[in-house]
Design a protein around this nucleic acid. Structure first.
Lengths: 256, 256
DNA sequence: CGCAGTTTTGATTCATCTCAATTTGTGTGG
DNA sequence: CCACACAAATTGAGATGAATCAAAACTGCG
C-alpha cells in the first residue's frame, strides 16, 4: 500500500494497523503539533478517524531526500521534527529553493497535480515526518467536512505564501529580502514556542541565497551589514535579533 | 453596482431545475471550455449537478476589478472570455503582478485560506467570468469524487506554476525571463486553439515588467533585442514569434 | 484630431555578481 | 584529544546587467 521506495527503513510499521501500540504512540490526537497541523473543532469520532489516516512515520537523516522530483506521488508529509528544504532544478544546473519547512508544516502538495513530485525535499537536520497517504486523505476529507475545509486552506495558504515570495523576488533589494526572511523565521519559531529573537539557521548561506534569489556572498555581506548596524548578532548559523523593530522598518521603507 | 451579492441571482434556476433556457445558456456541459475547466469522465448526472453549481456569470469591463485584496471571499471565478491580471500591493506603492489569466483558468484560490481575498484581480480587456460559490463547491466536491480530485489538482497546479515563477525570478536574467514569458503565453494560446506564433499582448510593458521582476524599460529593450536578432517581430502589443526553437534555446543555455 | 498614456532609445549610475584569497568551522580518524 | 581535510563563511576588488533619469516617438482613445 504505502509503497515506501525511497529509503526502506526497518522501524516503519509494515501494515496500516489502526490501533497498535505503535499507532497509538503516533496518534494525532496526542500530538502537540495538532494545532498547527489539524483543523480545530473536530469531534472525538472524527479525531479517531484522522488518527488512523496518519498511520506511519518516517525518519530522514540530515542531507537525505524525503522525495525527489519525478518520484510518483502517493502521500503528503507533515513535518514532525526537524527541518526541510524543497527545491527545483533545471538541466543547466541552476536550482531554486522554493521553501524551508519546519514542524507542523506540510510537504508534497505540489505532487497532486501531476501525480508526480515536481521538486525535491531534503532534510537539513535529522528529521521525522508523518506520512499521510493521499488517497485516504481524499476519501476521509470528503466525509469529514472540517478536514476538507482545512486541507483547502492549507493549499490556499501555500499559494498566498508563494505570492509573498514572488513579491520579495520581484521587488525587493538584497537587504530587504534578508530582513523579510529573518522576520518570517522569527514568526514561525515563535508560533512553535521558541525564542523570536534567537535561533539557529539550519541552512547554508548558499541555500538562503537560492531562496532569496541572491548569491551566497551577497547574503553574507547583508548579514555583516546588519551586524555592523546593530540590528542583529550573527555568528555563522547562530542569529540573535537585537532590534526587531528596525529590522521590520527596513521592509516598509520606500526603496528609492 | 457590483452589489451583485454572490448568492442570490435573478437568472439562476430557483430549484434544481436542470435545464431552463437560462441554465442552458450558461451550462458547463455546453461550454467549449469545459476541457480546460472541468474534470473528464463525469457521469451525465454529475455534469448536471455541476451545471447548477456554476449558475451565474459576471461581466467585467476592461480596467475594472473583479475583486480586491481585503474583499470577503465567497466564490472562485472561471474566466469565460477575456483576460485578467492578479497583483499584490504593499504600502509603499510597490506592486507585484502574480499572474495573467485567460479563458478556462481559475481566479480567487488565494482567498480560501483567510476567507478574504489577498490580491486584486483586474480585467485587462472586457471579460466575462463564471461565478462558483465556494460553499457549494465544497459541498458538491465532497459528493462528486472526480470534482474533488480535479479541484485539488487545480490548486496544486497553481503551486507548481508559482514554483516556476520563483525559479524565473530567482535565477534568470532579463532576456531569459522574457523568453520564458513569451513561450508560456504561446503554449497557453495554443491550448485554446489560437496561433502559437502570433498573438496580441493584453498587458503593458510595465505589467510584464512587474510580473518578471524587471523595469518596463528593460522589458522594452529585451523586446527590441529579440527583434534585432530575428527571434520575433514585435510592434507594440502585437507579437510574432519567428524562431520558436531559438527562443526556447535561450532558456536551456547556461547563464555565464 | 489632439492629448495622455505607452513605448522606445540613450546616457549614466548603482546594486549585485563574479572571481579570488583568507578565515573559520566541522567532521573524521589516528 | 588533536590534527587534518574539507566545507562554509567572510571579505575585497573589479566587472556587469539592470535601474534610473531623461527625452523623443508612437498609438489609440475620447
Amino acid at each position: 500500500m504505502t509503497n515506501i521506495k525511497l529509503q526502506p527503513k526497518p522501524d516503519a510499521p509494515t501494515k496500516s494497523v489502526p490501533l497498535t501500540f505503535d499507532a497509538l504512540k503516533v496518534a494525532c490526537s496526542q500530538c502537540n503539533l495538532r494545532e498547527l497541523c489539524l483543523p480545530l473543532g473536530m469531534t472525538e469520532d472524527e479525531m479517531v478517524r484522522v488518527d488512523t489516516l496518519v498511520g506511519a512515520r518516517r525518519k530522514i537523516k540530515r542531507g537525505h531526500h524525503l522525495y525527489r522530483a519525478g518520484d510518483p506521488f502517493e502521500a503528503i508529509y507533515a513535518v514532525k521534527t526537524g527541518f526541510f528544504k524543497t527545491d527545483v532544478l533545471i538541466e543547466d544546473g541552476r536550482d531554486q529553493v522554493t521553501g524551508f519547512l519546519m514542524a507542523g508544516e506540510l510537504l508534497g502538495l505540489d505532487g497532486i497535480s501531476s501525480e508526480t513530485h515536481t521538486c525535491n525535499a531534503v532534510a537539513l537536520e535529522d528529521s521525522e515526518v508523518c506520512l499521510i497517504p493521499y488517497e485516504e486523505l481524499e476519501r476521509l476529507s470528503s466525509e469529514v467536512r472540517t478536514l476538507q475545509r482545512h486541507f483547502h486552506k492549507v493549499m490556499s495558504r501555500e499559494i498566498v505564501r508563494e505570492h509573498g515570495v514572488m513579491m520579495l523576488l520581484g521587488t525587493m533589494r538584497a537587504e530587504e529580502r534578508l530582513a523579510a526572511f529573518l522576520l518570517n523565521l522569527s514568526q514561525r519559531f515563535t508560533a512553535r514556542g521558541y525564542s523570536p529573537t534567537e535561533f539557529h539557521l539550519r541552512m547554508t548561506r548558499e541555500e538562503i541565497g537560492s531562496y532569496l534569489g541572491l548569491k551566497l556572498e551577497t547574503v553574507s555581506r547583508a548579514f555583516s551589514r546588519f551586524q555592523e548596524e546593530g540590528l542583529i548578532n550573527v555568528q555563522q548559523k547562530y542569529v540573535h535579533i537585537l532590534d526587531y523593530e528596525r529590522l521590520r522598518h527596513l521592509l516598509s521603507r520606500c526603496p528609492a
